Simulated scan of single mutants.
Amino acid sequence: MQKNARVEYDYSVAKAFTFTAILFGILGMIVGVTLAFQMAFPHLSNLAGEYGTFSRLRPLHTNTVIFGFTLSGIFAGWYYMAQRILKVSLRESPFLMFIGKLHFLLYFITIILAVVTLVAGYTTSKEYAELEWPIDIIIVLWWVLWGVGIFGLIGIRRERTLYVSIWYFIATFMGIAMLYLFNNMEIPTALYSGYGSWMHSVSMYSGTNDALVQWWYGHNAVAFVFTVPIIALIYYFLPKESGQNVYSYKLSILAFWGLMFVYLWAGGHHLIYST
């Protein structure tokens, strides 16, 4: 393609994630409303036996909204924005197109498995990290695939300058990779004790250490899913839709590194129910 030729962007992967965000957004909110009614009318927990209890629906709600709805929107945003910001199309790299579609497929399978296992009662009992170890392995696979897609597109970009949104996406990838791996270190119960379920697992940490690692992760599940990538979306769509340039690039640098150095290490407050 010539240097000044018009780039034909491919939004197929972005659209797939967008439809998934809509689907799991609706499902997650329905479960959330159901839980709200159960808190007001506790007898509603008995409508579907063990499968409709608050204790099973609550993690289903949080995981569907956080990882089914929000993360789908973030991935959709990446596959839409990155091509435009970096001035390169997924069509130009069959390899990266394959990676993107495989990323979506494994991700969608993960969400379906999450719904089935959580309703069935399989859980690590660690908030925002309830999914058991076989699903964790699949999550690591598609997270690595997303990383390959991120750095692959950056590597073949035409636009030399990395817009601030790209920084936030890179931080999201690296931050969650570190957090998820460390917090989900677990051993299948049958392997650890010689009996019990192979699906169930026990944490490699114990006592206070387990609590500290869990809320280092839990706090940053909010930071690096609900905050950092959302800021990436805002930095692109807000100037685009308003027609106003970013006021200060220096402030964006201050905000980025302030968030990275402070937010990342502030998880302990969850353990003392304080700010």
Rank of each mutant, 00 (worst) to 15 (best):
P134A: 09
S252E: 14
V246Q: 10
W265C: 01
G32H: 04
A255V: 15
Y180W: 12
Y247C: 03
Y180T: 05
I231Y: 11
S201W: 09
S125M: 13
E50Q: 12
G121S: 06
I30V: 15
Y163S: 07
Q83P: 02
A232H: 05
P59F: 02
G25R: 07
F169P: 01
Y180G: 00
G196W: 09
H43G: 07
N245E: 15
L27G: 09
S89N: 04
V140S: 10
A40F: 03
V65G: 00
G207T: 03
K240I: 03
G152P: 05
P134Y: 06
T124C: 07
Y263V: 10
S93V: 04
N4L: 09
I234D: 09
G267Y: 04
F256S: 05
W133A: 00
P134H: 08
A223D: 00
N184Y: 05
W142L: 14
T275L: 15
I154S: 06
A177N: 09
A16W: 10
P94F: 05
F224C: 06
G147W: 12
H103P: 05
W257K: 02
L57K: 07
I112W: 12
N46E: 14
W167S: 04
F67R: 04
K240R: 13
P134R: 03
I139C: 11
V33T: 07
L47I: 14
V116A: 13
A76H: 01
P134N: 10
S45T: 13
F17K: 01
V225C: 02
S12C: 08
M178P: 00
T124S: 14
F182N: 12
W198D: 02
H200A: 10
A114S: 02
M29E: 08
V7D: 00
G147Q: 09
S206T: 13
E50D: 13
I154T: 05
W265K: 02
Y107G: 10
M174L: 15
I30G: 12
M97A: 13
N220L: 01
L179M: 13
R84F: 09
L181Y: 13
N4G: 01
L264G: 10
A36R: 13
R158F: 04
E127K: 05
E8F: 14
L71H: 06
Y51T: 08
G77E: 02
L27D: 06
G100R: 03
T227C: 15
